[in-house]
Design a protein around this nucleic acid. Structure first.
Lengths: 323, 323
DNA sequence: TGATAAATGCTCAGAGTGAGCATAAGGAAG
DNA sequence: CTTCCTTATGCTCACTCTGAGCATTTATCA
């Protein structure tokens, strides 16, 4: 039992981290430039699972600290990726599993530890940012989406494609859901719009028109992992007070609202957001007042730690607003 | 790069399946008896990841089909478990990762494929079934829980323990949440009530009184994986129509309600459940009427497949009722 | 000093939800 | 056949939650 049987080849386990912070109005993710086949691509920090780490999460924290100098606060396992044809290629025929993690930190844009840099995640998902109304790309994506639907022969398959595309991208009267980030990315991958889908020369190269629709690609399947992370985070802020992991110790209502909007990619109704946060008891006022907000000074707030334990689901169950 | 460096020892990846079905009023999970050190324990079906499987899920489906004769319908990845001190011991010092999966099937209790058997999951979690009111074990668990709280020195630690125990088990005015299955199990593990916690002779053996409090243990960390699965499933039925994966093609409102109650371990208000399901458009009436329900005959229903695609979150957002 | 922007307070209509009353329609007991 | 029990179904009502938007207050800036 000590010797692996011949057919058991090496399985390599990578821990891959999506480390998120907010800088101004940008949701940032920590990436490391990596030389790809043709160009320099951005890669998520990742490292091998080592046996000395007693838990997976401890392993992740250890090498993130070593590699990027960042000490992680909130960490959550996302998903284990193991598709053979989408895994990073180590060139030796071994099977690679990536265990994806989501981590939240307050570290700002200025601190760019090691070779890493903070990048706005919407560069990789330009269709996900609705804060200034419907993104321009989205209008252009509609055509290839409909073409893909029409390409199926009429019947069940076409119906299914139509519903899938409609649901993911809010076509045909469906409403846009901020949480379907992964659905949308996977659909674009399947259609072949996303550059990663064409790597194994599985699909034809993008036409120049199509290339413009795609966001910035990432190394290996890292954009998929990032999509998974955004999906999870957007869902989670609605029922757990995780935004506060990204906030400074004190803040104003509007700053908190902007943080949520930044992550969710939507605008919220100011008074209702305020009411929601206040009545959930998630924050308490300090005795300070913050001036220079561009208008009437705001009360300074801080997160009430106790809130985590009080309510069953103390998140911010906001909904996008029209304005 | 072909040869693994010396410090890279073998990582073995197991796929572990929590296969759930409903038989009568029991939520069943497929288990296989396995000889433990002292007694026969129940183990979840699991098998190694093989390289020929192009995706993890395909691998899971393949060996579940081979081993248990069951063809899985709904499958969802749960979590990857890798804690060194809680992993199954293969006896060769290798690192074992288990990727847990949740699978739902209609297969009934009678079909016991291979060496496997269907077992009521509440045997492993007797404190989770509130369908006939507060479970008796729960009253008895309160004492050791409070002792554990009191054992911490006064201050932050004790406060934290008090809040954690209260939140998980609904003590001190907190309300019981059907979704905290994993929290509760992990807390009992930490306290040492759960037999698995004492395996590595880490904690003293249970007093006879304490042993009665514990549910039936499972092999390795399988009870933890099962707890994770129940947690996920209980959460998911509230926002996705997954119950229907466990239902026969046609059913009545009450049967559907009983299925949800079985999974969630709580009683629901009949008329409101009915209204909820109906107005969500999750079901449609067939033209049949089912007699012999013990009262007035019921309309026969079937799941509306289209419902999956219509609403953003077409689950059953029920809440426990008093009656 | 007036315009503008932000902070805060409050109202109001509607949808959604918990509880429970009331009626209908089978089956079993007498 | 009548009565009682059980489940199926319909409907009401009080309340809470939420989306929207009006109104005021208090800074900053031209």
């Amino acid at each position: 039992m000590n010797q692996a049987p011949a057919q058991e080849q090496a399985v390599v386990v990578d821990l891959t981290a999506v480390i998120v912070s907010i800088a101004g109005d940008q949701p940032c993710v920590l990436v490391r430039p990596r030389q790809g086949r043709k160009a320099v691509l951005e890669a998520l920090p990742s490292g091998p699972l080592e046996l000395r780490h007693r838990t997976l999460e401890a392993g992740l924290r250890a090498w993130v600290a070593a590699q990027t100098g960042t000490s992680l606060g909130y960490v959550e396992q996302l998903y284990t990726f193991g598709d053979q044809d989408r895994a990073p290629d180590h060139g030796d025929g071994s099977r690679v599993l990536s265990i994806g993690y989501l981590a939240l930190t307050r570290a700002g844009k200025d601190s760019a530890p090691g070779e890493t840099v903070w990048r706005d995640w919407y560069r990789h998902f330009p269709w996900e940012d609705w804060r200034r109304g419907q993104p321009a790309v989205l209008r252009d994506l509609e055509k290839p989406l409909r073409r893909w639907v029409a390409a199926a022969k009429a019947g069940a398959e076409r119906t299914s494609r139509k519903e899938r595309a409609g649901l993911a991208f809010g076509l045909d009267g469906a409403t846009w859901s901020d949480e379907r980030v992964l659905d949308r990315y996977e659909l674009l991958y399947e259609i072949g719009i996303v550059a990663e889908a064409r790597r194994g020369s599985r699909a034809p190269a993008a036409s120049p028109a199509e290339a413009k629709l795609d966001g910035l690609p990432m190394a290996a399947d890292h954009r998929r992992i990032l999509a998974t992370a955004i999906t999870r985070l957007r869902a989670k802020i609605k029922y757990r007070p995780v935004v506060f992991e990204l906030m400074p110790p004190t803040f104003t209502f509007l700053q908190l609202q902007r943080a949520v909007e930044t992550l969710a990619g939507v605008r919220l109704h100011k008074q209702n957001f305020r009411r929601l946060v206040a009545q959930q008891g998630l924050v308490e006022e300090t005795d300070a007042i913050i001036a220079g907000t561009g208008g009437r000074p705001a009360r300074e707030l801080r997160f009430r730690q106790e809130a985590i334990l009080e309510r069953p689901a103390p998140g911010l169950r906001f909904r996008p607003s029209a304005a």
